[in-house]
Nucleic acid binder design. Sequence first.
DNA 1: CGCCGCATGTCAGTCTTCTGACATGAGCAA
DNA 2: TTGCTCATGTCAGAAGACTGACATGCGGCG
Lengths: 146, 146
Amino acid sequence: MERTEQGVDLPTSVGYLLKEVATALRAEMERVLRPLSMTVTHYSCLELLAQRPGASSSQLARGTFVTRQSMHVLLQTLEREGHVVRATEPGGGRAMPVEITAEGRRRLAVASAAVRSVEARMLDGLGDDEATLRALLQRCRASLRG
Amino acid sequence: MERTEQGVDLPTSVGYLLKEVATALRAEMERVLRPLSMTVTHYSCLELLAQRPGASSSQLARGTFVTRQSMHVLLQTLEREGHVVRATEPGGGRAMPVEITAEGRRRLAVASAAVRSVEARMLDGLGDDEATLRALLQRCRASLRG
DNA sequence: CGCCGCATGTCAGTCTTCTGACATGAGCAA
DNA sequence: TTGCTCATGTCAGAAGACTGACATGCGGCG
């Protein structure tokens, strides 16, 4: 019951539970993405890029919860594999717009379907409670930011 | 609305939201733990150890979501700092029981209070919905494991 | 008994990510 | 204009975590 005791009661701590679910979700994503020769990080980057074409490296970094330095090396890999294309010169400001290629979109379509199936399984049987869960998580996010 | 479309709609995806909240929570934990010269990983290990005295390195690893190899080096650090003590020989089986020291408990008490305040802030204003959130997360965890 | 599977501890190497630092370019205000 | 601030790109090094591998000890089963 998470009483006001000395220490956090792990089994009932919402924070710990959050970590458990997030870890399990990531593990499942890795499992279904492995046969596609794609990591969760690669997938996340492509998914975000498909929704925000021309985004900069820094913007992609923020959206995928890594540093811009990490995104920098990740994009080098994705470019080498032909999944994305980086502009050779700034498109206004210092930002270098990144675009997903046709090949990238093909790979993403398969990966995205796999990931959606995982998320669907996680939410299986929740019904209307899915909206409740989403709303509660959004409130948590807002509280943490304040 | 996360329609059955091509691709995952990030802003409304429960999976993405989960990652956002988990990341924000971890960042806040790091922020309050930093003045105590303690990392989230160190704290997690001590917290778990306080609740499961005599746990093995592998058990601690599973409970903190890292590999047993990582826990191995982490315990070396914690032992060097005098926060834990490792048995010199197996206590039945190959497992080497680990114990938290008095110094470790003192450090943990302060850290635990800080972390609880972060979690409390995240859950601020949720009221009875906290139990709902916990129940929904537990259902997600169960669905992913199946 | 002997064999096999399984969990654990540990060593070595690799890989990913992060921190720190610096330069560049845009925007804003004095 | 000049100067300040901020975001961005990039390079280099350090830290953390992981994968792979091997040895050891327990337990079940033929």
